[in-house]
Design a protein around this nucleic acid. Structure first.
Lengths: 336, 336
DNA sequence: TTGTACGCGTTATCAA
DNA sequence: TTGATAACGCGTACAA
């Protein structure tokens, strides 16, 4: 794999390296047409491709950014990442996607690796467990934007949704349809997003003067959700409506229902956080609390770019509203 | 964002750059314990992080590979990419994921971009439309592996499944359940995968001495599939069984069925290529022709790594078998 | 309009 | 056991 360098092109064209460099950077103003053509021909013949690596080293800019998602299996992460990648490709910036797998150690490793690779900036779905590291990033002035989650006491701008309000809204919806026992099912409360949702849950229950039953708040790893649901539904007064924290939880609920012969929309109502691509196609169609993932990704990308280009060093958090998409799975009216 | 370099560490520790480099590369054999400690302390205090970029320039190896998928929305691509990334991360190699979006121009652009970035190798879901480019890659000795598709006349090893045989198997299954009019629905026949499946379809129909109806072979862009299905089902003798070419086609079929009040498993039977994550959870559960996507990704990654490390320059194509997962959507017995 | 020379942060070679 | 020096491939003053 013989590499052809600028020097080779220069020799072939009978000019100096700098002239070739000029050519590549399209500074034709002071270049004779002949030289220009000679160089073009030489490049063509040799099949020369500039080495971005060397250029990056010199320019101290790699035109690469890193995305660290908490859990790549989560559909929301995928959508957001896609948006970020799309945005940056328009600016000739490549994204490297890393999956921290909800593991703070992996997150740390990736952050350090990406910095070593000199990426120009980072968009992180933080595990929220590496405070010192986040603070280091801020101090060293590294361009970073947080996604989906917020970390207190760290001055990094974040893009997220109004989790609390969205949860209140879906509960309001359930109440209007006559539900009196509503349960929320989520993964462990290690991150702000889930905490906010449970806070919204508590608030809504309280404000509606309903009984707050702690057993109705399931916070468990996905692998344990099925058994927890079994316990919940074995109670004398099981819930009549469930709120699923994300698409992964939703699949667990589906599995639970299937195994236990419960029909969604009949035996219990259901609403799910996240965009489920097939939500409107299954029977019954599933009510979702959709996050504007594409806009969120785009926004974060914009913010990061402005940080990279130093246009703006003091960015505000951005909070999006969720959209409640009512479908059949939550439309049953409960008459006690 | 002041960058601290090896020179800074060297100065602080009172040694030369070369010694620091030795230290970083763990060549401690001929190094006094004191120097070692001095350097370690200096690195610690300055918060020094080696610059991989400079290292890569020198070593002519970036520890990055590129993945170019044809269509990132396709679930199969995601699974394969995940497997590739997982494999390479174990070897401290980062993957850059690019979405060619089924566009040969984009594919070309990405290949060139990734080469300019000096990635160590490429795994490509080829559009099959850039023959000259593929040939160039081979000639320049660039490590490349094709995924999912095969390109004739180009000496690049590929990892794929036995599309033709898998299609024959599903048709055999349908026939056993009494179907006499089976249709295959796929995207346009621009790539080997789809061509092989349609070939398998033709072969199976012929061998079973059934009537080969060209109208029963739908090859259309996803956006046109719905209307094509409408035409198909408006015929006097519509098919009683459908084979969907992938998950995107499947969603179109779901949509079509919903809009026209047709019930899957009742009004027609269905089998789908690809792993649909929720296939067993919906009603009726969907019969799938699963590709071993994770193994395929892993295999391709292994092959690429061996090419990169020059262990092996003549690799064979690898063909995996699909697994037929019979579920309710195809279990109805047709009695004419 | 073009060429020379140096710097970017490493690593490799070879002396010391 | 350590250090000086030359690469790696490109960009850019500054000189010519």
């Amino acid at each position: 794999m013989k590499k052809v360098t600028m020097a080779d092109v220069a020799k072939k064209a009978g000019v100096s390296k700098s002239t070739v460099s000029q050519f590549l950077n399209k500074r034709f103003e002071y270049m004779s047409v002949e030289t220009r053509e000679k160089i073009a021909k030489a490049i063509e013949q040799l099949g020369y491709k500039p080495n971005y690596l060397a250029r990056s080293l010199k320019q101290k800019r790699t035109s690469m950014i890193g995305i660290i998602v908490a859990n790549i299996v989560h559909h929301f992460s995928t959508e957001v990442s896609r948006a970020i990648e799309d945005f940056f490709i328009e600016h000739d910036i490549h994204a490297i996607l890393c999956n921290a797998d909800n593991d703070p150690k992996k997150e740390r490793r990736y952050i350090e690796m990406l910095q070593a690779k000199q990426v120009d900036g980072l968009i992180i779905f933080p595990t929220e467990q590496n405070l010192d590291l986040y603070k280091n990033l801020v101090e060293s002035g590294y361009p970073v934007v947080f996604m989906d989650r917020k970390v207190d006491d760290v001055n990094i701008p974040s893009v997220k949704v109004n989790n609390s309000e969205a949860t209140e809204a879906i509960i309001q919806h359930f109440i209007e349809y006559g539900h009196e026992r509503i349960s929320i099912v989520t993964q462990p409360l290690t991150i702000s997003t889930r905490i906010e949702r449970v806070n919204g849950y508590r608030k809504a229950i309280k404000e509606n003067e309903m009984e707050l039953n702690e057993d109705f708040i399931i916070r468990a790893e996905t692998k344990d959700i099925n058994s927890q649901l079994k316990l919940l539904f074995a109670k004398k007064n099981p819930p009549t409506a469930l709120i699923a924290g994300n698409d992964l939880v939703f699949l667990e609920i589906l599995e639970f229902a299937k195994e236990n012969g419960l029909k969604i929309g009949i035996d219990f109502s259901l609403a799910v956080f996240d965009n489920i691509p097939f939500a409107h196609l299954v029977t019954p169609a599933v009510t979702t609390i959709a996050q504007p993932s594409y806009e969120m990704g785009e926004k974060a990308a914009q913010m990061l770019l402005s940080l990279i280009e130093k246009e703006n060093s003091e960015l505000q958090d951005v909070v999006y509203n969720c959209q409640l998409l009512i479908r059949d799975s939550s439309r049953i009216v409960r008459t006690k």
